[in-house]
Amino acid sequence: MVDLSQYLPILLFLFIALGLSVAFVFLPMGVSRLTGAHQPTAEKLSEYECGFPAFEDSRGQFDVRFYLVAILFIVFDLEAAFLFPWAVSLDLTGWAGWTTMMIFLAELAVGLAYAWKVGALEWE
C-alpha cells in the first residue's frame, strides 16, 4: 500500500494552477466586459477572409506519414513504460528479470534497426 499523502503537494499544485489559470482567463474577460463597449452583431462575429465568405474548411489534410511516426512513437513509448516496473522490482526478479528485459529491448532494437534501414524514420 502506498501512502497517498506523498501526492499532497501535487494536489495542492493542481488546485493552485487551476485557480490561477481560471483567474488569468476569466478576470480579463470580465474586466473588459464591464469596462468596454459590447455590441456584437452577426456581421462582426462572422469569419473574415478578404471580404469573401470562407472558401474551405480550415482543417487541412495531413500526410499519412504522420501516422507511421505516431505508431512508431507508441511502440517505443510502451517499451519505456515497461521499464518502470522492471526497474523497481529488479531485486525481486533477479537475473531472470534482467535477461528478460534485455531480450525484450533487443526485439524492439531489431525493429528500430529495420525501421531505420528501410527509411521509415526519414521524412524526405
Binding site: M1, V2, F82, F84, P85, W86, A87, V88, S89, L90, L92, T93, A96, G97, T100, M101
Partner: peptide
C-alpha cells in the same frame, strides 16, 4: 510493496 513493484515481480518472472 507498491503495486508497481508487485506487478514487476510477476511480469518479469
Amino acid at each position: 510493496t507498491s503495486n508497481i513493484e508487485s506487478l514487476g515481480a510477476v511480469l518479469y518472472s
